[in-house]
């Protein structure tokens, strides 16, 4: 084993790339859950976005069009969930699970003729002198545009939730849908928009995997990233900046275990591969443990109407 082969600079740099798809999906799901909807279909929307983005990017030769198509694909798939849960009042947990299974199957079908193809390459953003700063340059300023857009999205969501009326209405709908309705807000409309936003973000996250991180198409390539995104939302107590922390933490563990594998650590590879997931579970258990005074930290921060169906009867 040769730990000296692991370069901290490269490790940190690849951490940012590894965290981006999960961060995108988790930010989308954060908005969905803030509106009081629990969509467990993140994995399905991610992988649908991955193939939509990949196929369109290959066909058009433009990664930008690919990403747009990925967002649209994820949003369209999420609309199925939105229609079923918001209009037909189906159970959100069951519908979300079904959406994941459906997305996995649909993406395999769509991706049959794209296996083994390389997508159009995506340039790293040229940040000029910034990239030449020692240490900070390679870590922070040597990535593709999506990494920075995702960070901007995270800050944007934080500011929107905290400072804008739209954010206030979104939180209100998730907190008490009966009250929001009584005050004249369109609960179903707000939730549908949130669900579509979540779908689009998950789609972008999937496309980031298939177009940049990997980059190629294989069936089931999201490999549980959507579930990790769901877990990170809980871990973050529904706060955008903590979602960032959680995604980087998970990304860091993932990258570290890959490096340890490469360095030939004398542990079966399978243990290393499962470590990010194990650590996620441990963190979730700690977060959900009851505090003094009863409720867990996680359940305190949860939107009060999370997962509850709303019907404007009366």
């Amino acid at each position: 084993m040769d730990l000296s082969a692991i370069s901290p600079t490269l490790l940190l740099a690849s951490l940012m790339v590894a965290a981006t798809p999960i961060l995108l999906a988790a930010l989308g799901e954060l908005i969905v859950e803030k509106s009081g909807v629990l969509n467990l279909g993140v994995e399905g929307m991610m992988i649908t976005g991955a193939i939509c983005g990949f196929a369109i990017a290959v066909e058009t030769g433009s990664p930008v069009v690919g990403f747009i198509a990925a967002a649209a694909g994820g949003a369209v798939l999420s609309l199925i969930f939105g229609f079923l849960t918001q209009y037909l009042l189906s159970n959100q947990v069951a519908t979300g699970l079904a959406l994941t299974l459906f997305g996995l199957g649909l993406s395999s079908l769509m991706g049959q003729s794209y296996v083994g193809i390389r997508p159009p390459a995506i340039e790293k953003l040229n940040l000029g002198p910034l990239a030449d700063i020692p240490l900070l340059g390679p870590v922070l300023f040597n990535h593709d545009l999506m990494v920075y857009l995702t960070l901007a999205l995270c800050v944007g969501i934080w500011a929107t939730l905290k400072f804008t009326r739209a954010g206030l209405i979104l939180r209100a709908v998730g907190e008490n849908h009966d009250a929001a309705h009584a005050l004249g807000y369109k609960v179903v409309k707000v939730r549908l928009l949130a669900i579509m936003f979540g779908g689009a973000c998950a789609g972008l996250g999937g496309a980031y995997l298939s177009l940049i991180r990997v980059p190629q198409w294989t069936e089931g390539m999201t490999a549980g990233a959507g579930w990790i995104a769901l877990a990170i939302v809980v871990f973050a107590s529904w706060r955008p900046l903590r979602v960032l922390l959680g995604a980087y933490l998970f990304g860091g563990v993932t990258v570290l275990q890959l490096n340890l594998q490469a360095a030939g650590l004398a542990i079966p590879v399978e243990y290393l591969s499962m470590s990010p997931y194990l650590i996620t579970i441990v963190v979730l258990v700690i977060m959900s443990a009851p505090r003094k005074g009863g409720k867990s930290r996680a359940s305190l921060a949860a939107p009060a109407c999370l997962g509850r169906a709303f019907h404007a009867s009366q």
């Binding site: 206030l168 209100a172 009250a179 009060a304």
Partner: peptide, 29 residues
């Protein structure tokens, strides 16, 4: 919204406040 614009306001018996939001946010809504 139209009722409020016309000058009609209502104090509800229950479910019209948001516990996790502060007083000013509740009023703004």
């Amino acid at each position: 919204r139209a009722a409020r614009a016309a000058g009609v306001a209502m104090v509800f018996q229950h479910f019209s406040l948001f516990e996790a939001l502060n007083v000013a946010e509740n009023i703004a809504l």
